[in-house]
Amino acid sequence: MRDERPEHPRDDVRDDRSGDRHGGRRGDRHPGVAGREVRVNRPRREAAARRIMEQSPPRVPPDLCAEAVRRGGRMLRRRTAARRLMWLLLAAAAVAFAVWALTVQPWVEPPSETTPPVTGWEGW
């Protein structure tokens, strides 16, 4: 429906303030009228919105960089410490497992506890 009418160059000249009075906010839900207007005037509207947004830039506080470096440095130190702690825990776990394995030796077949060893049958 919105593509039936070809875009006429005069649409660009028309002041979009007058056209959007009824079609802008409420009509955006309605895809027919607002869709065409938005598409036709898009560059101009975007330029106007950019102009509105670019006025009155705030003043940058002088200690911003130092603050960011302080926080970022703390973050880095924490990360390093966490990494170190993780490796330390991993190494400790590996050592503990090795010591346990060497003392218990779980791969050796345990002596049987239910059946008494059979001895002295070779002579039959």
Binding site: M53, S56, P57, P58, R59, P61, L64, C65, E67, A68, V69, R70, R71, G72, G73, M75, L76, R79
Partner: peptide, 29 residues
């Protein structure tokens, strides 16, 4: 400051947001 919709000369939330973002950028530099 545009994001937090604060006045240009009183923007504590924007400053905090920016300081945290910059700190992360520094940490991943």
């Amino acid at each position: 400051t545009l994001l937090t919709a604060e006045a240009p000369d009183a923007n504590p939330r924007a400053r905090r947001l920016l300081a945290l973002s910059l700190a992360h950028t520094y940490a991943s530099w």
